[in-house]
Design a binder for these strands. Structure first.
Lengths: 200, 200
DNA sequence: TTAGTATATGGAGGCTCCCTCCGTTTATGC
DNA sequence: GCATAAACGGAGGGAGCCTCCATATACTAA
């Protein structure tokens, strides 16, 4: 969530490298995404772009310069969060024990799923199940889950008689369910984690 | 879908029987629901109430006189369809063999699920999973399914090693899935039906 | 440093949608 | 037929998405 730059549109046809954003533009881009994330998390899907622009201290025209429509903004948040989750997996695997890396990543994934339900729904509603951003996110999540959960399995600290896929479904399913509060979710995740541990 | 009257609001507190709608009002009420059903089926969720009113040959004010807001109209369609499905179950069971009654009802249910996905989604989005209309519909569908599918089981023409509930889930699940065309759905339903038959 | 220019800004306003209000019309009971 | 409660319908308020373009600002080359 720190220094996020707009994905530099490396145009695959014309090799003409697009020049970087002007400093103020990059600042506004970041502020917009950060604000939008906050507001959407607070208010759910029915948030007006006007309010996001206002709270980001930016004109509505500027918002539309960066994100050609509502969907583009939502997708940008979603994509950034998913990529953050992947980066977290790398970091955890590099610095913690296989079990801890797995447990911490599952917790982060659960928190992510809880807040991103709204985003996911709206994107699917508007762009369809096959939206590029959604299949990209599936791919990234699967890779990160394999790194952390699969890694813990390969290290012998997590049961082998269960698929990585099942676990992400389980955790995702629990927390995507509307109506469960944060505490309940944490309990459910802890329960799943306990069930995963290889008994010593 | 023929003679539907507005559910006469038998006010449970004051026993004061509400007088029936004036003839023109009843006519418009029916026309509005019928038109709305068509338009929503055609265009999905993003249909303006203005267009529904216009195509029903009625002013927007009239629409709002009958349905205080968008959700009320959607709920009315949904409720009517569900009740129609229940009535169909009664009729089929009374006039056809247990197997035919079951098969025809499952087909009707499948068609219903396919077109009502949109409605269901929007109602849940706005009114929440616990909306009265949704729990009512669950109850009604369960009863109708027990009458037809359960009846066929009790008559010995449908396998007994499967729950009624599983079948409605299966059929509903298949057809609620976006992206399947009508023909594919019919094939899936036929497949399920074949699987249900008690081998002679 | 400065001037010139590509880039970025922001808000007025168009369009559509949901919904309200209220003057006009119409069915119904006497 | 008349009186009147009931119903109609559409103008318009408010909000949301998005466009357009006059203005402002960050870079760059001299």
């Amino acid at each position: 969530m720190s220094t996020t730059t707009r994905p530099t549109a490396t145009d695959e046809v014309t090799e003409q490298a697009t020049r970087p954003l002007r400093a103020d533009a990059q600042r506004n881009y970041d502020k917009l995404i950060a604000t939008a994330r906050t507001v959407v998390t607070e208010q759910g899907s029915d948030t007006s772009l006007e309010e996001i622009a206002r709270r980001a201290g930016v004109g509505i025209g500027t918002l539309y310069r960066h994100f050609p429509n509502r969907l583009a903004l939502l997708e940008a948040i979603y994509r950034e969060d998913v990529d953050g989750l992947a980066a977290l997996a790398d970091r955890l695997v590099a610095t913690e024990s296989p079990w801890d890396a797995m447990a911490h990543w599952v917790e982060a994934f659960s928190a992510y799923a809880a807040t991103k339900r709204v985003l996911f729904h709206e994107i699917m509603e508007v762009a369809g199940r096959e939206a590029e951003v959604l299949s990209h996110s599936r791919k990234v999540i699967v890779a990160a889950a394999d790194l952390t959960i699969g890694g813990a399995q390969r290290a012998g600290v997590v049961r082998n008689d269960i698929q990585v896929n099942d676990i992400t479904r389980l955790v995702g399913g629990c927390t995507m369910m509307p109506g469960a509060d944060a505490e309940q979710q944490r309990r459910m995740v802890r329960l799943v984690l306990d069930g995963l541990r290889v008994s010593p």
